[in-house]
Design a protein around this nucleic acid. Structure first.
Length: 295
DNA sequence: TAGATTTGACCATG
DNA sequence: CATGGTCAAATCTA
């Protein structure tokens, strides 16, 4: 069993490294007047590579019974919506953004989200109201929820550790037709590769991504087993094709993937952003006004 | 005017 | 009872 996991891990690392390599090639081509076909081909290869890596992750996290608590066969009879929500897979993506430029809404993961709520959450390291140690969490759901019954939601809140990092907690898989994983690579629109920062548009998954992926399995109530999966990866939304959340194999034993985007557009050499203040200039005692930021 | 956002209220859970 | 998550009416905006 150990060997199996080791092999999967190597396979995963290989895929991610390959994706990174391809992305580097793509960047080289971006600076050259080479034909679009080459770039598109590279793009397709990158996407295929990441898709494969993500499917490996999903397989490890959901598909195997020895890596996660077995699905409780008899869930207590509760409100359907509650049970359904609880059964949705969940993962968290930490994204560094530049204060004053990219809002959490600009953490474009290729899906269209609609904000449906915002809450003050306790437990923040820095007091937001001068006396209360709270942070603000914004709640989003898929725009196509009503039309297509897509149950995907996400929660965005500022990281405790670094005010320039957002924790984006995804819950549920997109079942709407906007699910870019479901579409052929030839039909993928630019939104998938770009994010908007300020007035400019930048690649969403640029080659300079050199990230640390940490996959955490939620064990029981809130305890995590942590394993470092790979030295490099991307911050791509690990959303894949999946059954409707209500019939998903995922269960109350939710899993959480922490994908820390240790780099971002603000670190990109190709991005000449005019930041009002840099990361290094952040006051360690910086108190972030969540309300001003999120509104 | 349709769709998105804001925000107070409500509800479930521990 | 405190807290987190969602609802829904009011408001905003393109």
């Amino acid at each position: 069993m150990e060997d199996m996991e080791e092999r999967e891990q190597k396979c995963l690392i290989n895929e991610l490294l390959q994706g990174r390599e391809l992305a580097m090639q793509l960047q080289a081509h971006l600076n050259l007047p080479s034909c679009n076909e080459t770039r598109e081909l590279l793009l397709q290869q990158i996407q295929a590579s990441y898709d494969k890596a993500l499917s490996l992750l999903n397989y490890k996290a959901i598909g195997t019974s020895d890596t996660i608590d077995p699905p409780p066969q008899s869930l207590p009879v509760r409100d359907d919506a509650t049970v359904q929500r609880k059964s949705l897979p969940r993962w968290t993506q930490q994204v560094r953004v530049s204060p004053g430029t990219a809002m959490e809404g600009n953490l474009d993961d290729g899906f269209s989200w609609r904000k449906y709520g915002q809450k003050d959450i306790l437990g923040a390291k820095y007091p937001s109201y001068g006396f209360k140690w709270v942070t603000c969490r914004a709640y989003y759901r898929c725009t196509h929820r009503n039309v297509q019954g897509c149950l995907a939601t996400k929660q965005v809140q500022r990281s405790d550790d670094d005010p320039t990092i957002f924790d984006v907690a995804y819950r549920g898989r997109h079942t709407c037709s906007n699910n870019n994983q479901e579409q052929g690579t030839s039909t993928i629109e630019p939104y998938q590769q770009q994010q908007h920062i300020g007035n400019q548009t930048y690649p969403l998954f640029p080659d300079y991504l050199s990230l640390n992926i940490k996959v955490e399995k939620e064990v029981g109530d809130g305890n995590y087993e942590t394993g470092n999966l790979s030295p490099t990866s991307s911050c791509r939304n690990p959303t894949g094709v999946m059954n409707n959340g209500s019939t998903s194999v995922a269960t109350e034993s939710e899993f959480t993937e922490i994908i820390r985007a240790a780099t971002s557009a603000m670190n990109a050499p190709t991005v000449g952003l005019d930041f009002p203040f840099g990361n290094a200039g952040l006051d360690p005692n910086f108190t972030f006004d969540d309300h001003a930021f999120f509104s």
